[in-house]
Design a protein around this nucleic acid. Structure first.
Lengths: 342, 342
DNA sequence: GTGAAAGCGCTAACAA
DNA sequence: TTGTTAGCGCTTTCAC
């Protein structure tokens, strides 16, 4: 773990200045976007810089400007095939805006504390969190003037910046789609207990089911992961009153449920049971699934998250904001008419 | 884009020193792992540090130690459901070793240049590249004394650090598995033209097929993505001599092929055609696919990549190394006996 | 074991 | 437009 410093062979602005026969600050200016430098100067400097492979040291710059141009992105490793897409989109957009992404993966609650320390130590200009964060942890960051944008989560009783996907209307359409098919008995495949996303989705589902005269006959819980759906589906289907439609809190579990029904329990989907999910992940469109689902506009969510954070890095006293995008109903072939009851 | 500096409220080592009534350098020492500090001193300092929420500024530290403890991870956004898993594993392991990950996504060739500049500007201590890199680009980094580890790629004619998965034996087992089932006519679903991974895999496949008395009757190319397999599969199956087994360069395309065969062309898999892939991604185990494939030990590959890089950051003159892990044959249900020919 | 002082590479007043 | 100067917050000799 000893530092063992590397040999110094990196050119500094002094080296460039010497070679170009100008002052060091002139070099600095040439690398600052809006600075006023004469054509001749810029030319001399840039030529020398090229020769020495000089690139300004972002670390030293950050020390003095108090801007690292580093943003931290927190993702829980509880990945459900969905975060990766989001992560790449976000990274890409930050890059275009001149920010670098420091990636943090959160495995357990305990990692968060450590992660926040690192964010602080590395002078991150801002944080996007797609991971679970307590209000206290959130406060720590904002107390330190580090803007935070929560991705796909917010606090009920505490003000934050957040990006959220509203699926109220789409959920209503989805449930109506099912009741129009004759479904009245619903089974809910919920996500983890403290998942805010799952809780919200299921709340909408319950409401819409009630609205359209349906009934929830069974509920079970999974972990959001594919594998977790098998047991949960068994439990739903062995209920006294069998559901004819299963609503999963995300696509991965919907896919797991679909496979369990078709391949283990010998049911036909949608012949015997209809299955729907949430997210609109790529795999949901695979021909073996063609899931009916509610798609989150993740591209636009990523855009919104990035600009919301960048805005707040640039204007620290911008007030909190919650930007809400709208999910859309996607009809697949995992849903169909109720089987005729005997 | 103006810096608009944040108000200074971050405690520095001077603040801590003042509060603790000691010198600033004493504070510094208290935060350096192996330093010699008296019990009393450490206590005073730590108490003051806690009170002020002091955490050493990693940026300033990096400036003087010439070690940023930042590593760059380059991934091509051409993600095939496989990189995300790898990325998270790598990040996690770096974190445990005291390094932070700077994430770079490469969309086009052109991004690489810019990315390398950023790596240089941010003084990254090392680079892991799971993206395409030319020898010249690789050289740029090593010339600047930045160690690089290539993930799942290497150069034939140029020495590098790399992590590679050897599937020679597993490929042989896989092809034998197929010929034992009576298959003799093979179709190859290759990856992108300049993908080294695809090229290598297909080379092994060709060799093994020859070994076991099979014959390649058709070849097509995809992009590694699920969607690309449909067209390629059509082209393979409309060949004069129809293959009875399709070997895809990765699981995603194998899944696409399988779906195209089953759901569009009305073939039975493995009744009419067998399908195999490479990678061993999570989705390959889904009940709708249960792909026969060759699994890469990505956890161990991530481990190897991280320690190889960390070693070289700590001992810059360690020689190049290629660490090769072994892929393993996974039998699924996407392969079976040849149909009886009429 | 502790403190004083130098300086990492840069930006940003300020003066010229 | 350009050069001079003073730090940013830290680590690290070097005395004591």
């Amino acid at each position: 773990m000893e530092p063992s410093p590397k040999p110094r062979l990196r050119a500094t602005s002094y080296d460039v200045a010497r070679l170009a026969g100008v002052s060091q600050s002139a070099v600095s200016r040439c690398f600052k976007p809006g600075a006023s430098v004469s054509e001749k100067m810029r030319d001399k400097v840039m030529r020398a810089a090229k020769e020495l492979h000089y690139q300004p040291n972002a670390i030293a710059r950050g020390l003095i400007t108090r801007r690292s141009n580093l943003v931290a992105v927190l993702v829980s490793s509880q990945m459900n095939f969905y975060y990766p897409e989001v992560l790449f989109q976000i990274t890409d957009r930050f890059s275009k805006r001149g920010f670098r992404v420091l990636l943090f993966t959160i495995n357990e609650e305990a990692d968060v504390e450590d992660c926040l320390n690192q964010v602080w130590q590395y002078q991150a200009d801002g944080v996007i969190s797609a991971s679970y964060l307590t209000i206290e942890q959130h406060k720590i960051l904002e107390d330190r003037n580090i803007p935070v944008v929560m991705f796909n989560r917010y606090f009920d009783d505490y003000d934050t910046n957040s990006i959220w996907c509203d699926s109220v209307a789409a959920t209503d359409v989805m449930i109506k789609h099912l009741t129009d098919f004759g479904h009245t008995q619903f089974g809910l495949l919920q996500g983890p207990e403290h998942s805010m996303v799952s809780a919200q989705r299921m709340k909408l589902v319950r409401h819409a089911i009630e609205n359209h005269g349906g009934r929830i006959v069974a509920q079970a819980r999974g972990t959001y992961r594919y594998e977790s759906a098998a047991g949960a589906t068994q439990s739903l289907m062995t209920n006294a009153a069998q559901p004819t439609a299963i609503i999963a809190a995300n696509d991965m579990m919907a896919m797991g449920a679909l496979d369990e029904l078709r391949n283990v329990m010998g049911c036909s989907v949608p012949g015997d049971v209809s299955v729907v999910g949430y997210d609109g992940i790529g795999a949901a469109r695979f021909a073996s699934y063609e899931l009916t689902t509610i798609r989150q506009p993740i591209g636009r969510m990523a855009d919104a998250a990035v600009s919301m954070l960048v805005d707040r890095v640039e204007k620290p006293d911008l007030s909190h904001e919650r930007r809400v995008l709208i999910g859309s109903f996607i009809q697949g072939t995992s849903t169909g008419p109720t089987p005729i009851q005997t």
